[in-house]
Amino acid sequence: MKQKLLMLAALSTFALGSYAVGDMAVLDDSLGLSPVSVFADPAPAAFEYRDLDPKVAGILPRSWEDAPPQIPHRAEKYMPVNAKMNKCLECHEEPGKIGKKEKGKPTPMSEAHYVKSDKGELSISNKHYVCTLCHAPQVDVAPIMANTF
């Protein structure tokens, strides 16, 4: 499946390269993220979210330094985050380790996620409580279209 997507991406990049630089005509079927006729009903590929154990998942590269990190490990078993339970916090809420990522250990939440109580104790800000608003589990698929950001 990964290969198929890569191939599609390559095909569309080729087609688009041609209209951008030359005078070659392009068929509409070769445009877009699904380079087939709009009247076709293609079969979408199946996909699975990463099922890696957090201990071995490592981290995913970030687009820029402060880009929100995406979830490199399996996530379904930690979901949902609800009012009674937030399993993400069990590992990532580490007010003592802000900014101190250690290899093989959970990435501590950044300081932006905490509030300080009157006693000086740090805890997660309720606004940041639903982790999946900003951090999404990822599937190992090639980009459907290259991005030059």
């Binding site: 687009s63 995406q70 999404a136 599937v139 190992d140 459907i144 279209m145 991005n147």
Partner: peptide
């Protein structure tokens, strides 16, 4: 869908 992080989050 042209942002790889978002595409990987929900590919289809």
């Amino acid at each position: 869908r042209r942002v790889p992080e978002l595409h990987r989050a929900v590919p289809a």
